[in-house]
Amino acid sequence: MDMTAQATLPGTSAAAREDAVARFIAAEKRRQQQRLIRNRLLAIGFGLLVIAIWYVATEYGFVHRLIIPSPVDTFWATGRVMSADYFWPNVGVTLSEIAWGFGIGLTSGVVFGVLVAMFDTVRATLYPYLVALQAPPKIVLAPIFVTWFGFDQPSKIAVAVVMSFFPMFLNTLTGLSSVDPNAVKLMRSLTAGRWKTFRHLLLPNALPIMMAGVKLCWTLAVLGVIVGEFVGASAGIGYLIYAMNFQLDIAGVFSLIILLSVFTLVIYQLIEWLESRIIFWKQL
């Protein structure tokens, strides 16, 4: 091998060639790093540009402050809102609504998804109705739920549940159904019953699609709670946004929207981290 390489590349010693390879790899690494830094700078630069445009447009009177508050106003409003004594109790109300809505929506979605996927009778009985129920936008239920469950937390939880149930249900069902037919044959040939097939094949196989459902489920649970609070509430972030908007405290509204976004994103990232742990084999 070495001999032929020597023959085709006269005058290059093994050491010289190794050196060339090492230099090439080092240069390639440097290029990769430079590309990474460039991409980061581009993203950060764009964000700064948007804030700058926002600043100029609002501070120099191109847009009225009552329509869009300036970044500076929003910054101070965030401090004001977070240190106000009414803030944290309202946060607590909304957080517990989201937690219950997400928890119940997720659990019921998984349970119904598993039942419909695994039992033909359940599928035949319930599936047409579950699909029909999925069609109308669930937000229309918010006013009815306020009538049924009152101004307190249960009506918000109910909206969050109906909104977050369907993605979890459908993704569980899809995940359990999209399986390699040969894998099912393998399990059958090993005389595995329904439960063993579920535990060893169908469930782990469904997890990637189910985790995508969890992320949707989370976003929709937050949305459901806030919408529920808009429609009729006496406490919560949605209620605060509604009230501040009414008082034309737009900077306050902006700060609440930003805080809510940050919170949703942090939990979303947490779910993504969990996902990478649970379905570790997708990263391999």
Binding site: D180, N182, A183, K185, L186, M187, S189, L190, T191, A192, K196, H200, L201, P204, N205, I279, F280, W281, L284
Partner: peptide, 29 residues
Amino acid sequence: RDIGMMFQTSVLFPWRTIRQNVRLPGEIL
């Protein structure tokens, strides 16, 4: 259980290591 099947695709479970894949029949049975 005294018949074994093999297919055109390997049908290995990606969440199991090679060893765990080979141990699947033993676990099922």
